[in-house]
Amino acid sequence: MAIRVGVQVSVCRIRRLREVGGMSFSKLFFVFLILSVSVFVVPVFVSAALGADGEDVVVSAIDRAEESVVSAYEAVLDAEEVGADVSELLDRLNVAGEYLAEARVCLGLGDFDEAVRLADLCYDVVEGVEGEAFGLESEAHALGVTDSVVRMVGSMVGVVVVVFLGFVFWRVFKRRYSKRVLGMRSEVVSGES
């Protein structure tokens, strides 16, 4: 009897162990399944999210570079309009434009790191151009004002001189003309009928 009871107890223990073992395997299997799926699925979502973020970073870097190039160009145009020599600034803008074009091409090709690098280079090159253009514009404007004053004063003096000389010449001419005409006048002799 004691042996039978002992056997039953040991059978129960084995069953419990089997049940416990069976449950652990199924749990482990599910955990393993979830992990396996995660290994393949999560990176897809993560990379898609990071890719989208990466593209946003590139686009904003290129937009920043493009805006700085455009505002520098507009400042250069203003300086050029008042007669400043902007050839050196145009050379720098050309370097910036080259970087910007390459950055945009790299963006199209999906080379985001290179695109950001080139956009930042573009921004660095063009950074001081706007300020220099304003400086050149001020200088050219000041020179232009001086030039205008000189021209106005010169012109006024010129007009006064021309009118004065014209008047003097006219007086001299009139006197000579009168003398010549009087000299040609026929004399009236008295006593003649």
Binding site: R151, M152, G154, S155, M156, G158, V159, G166, F167, F173
Partner: peptide, 20 residues
């Protein structure tokens, strides 16, 4: 003739200011 010539020369002298 003098007035016309003087006016013409005055215009030439004033051309720098006119260009401004």
């Amino acid at each position: 003739l003098f007035i016309v010539a003087t006016f013409g020369l005055a215009l030439v002298a004033a051309s720098p200011a006119l260009s401004v």
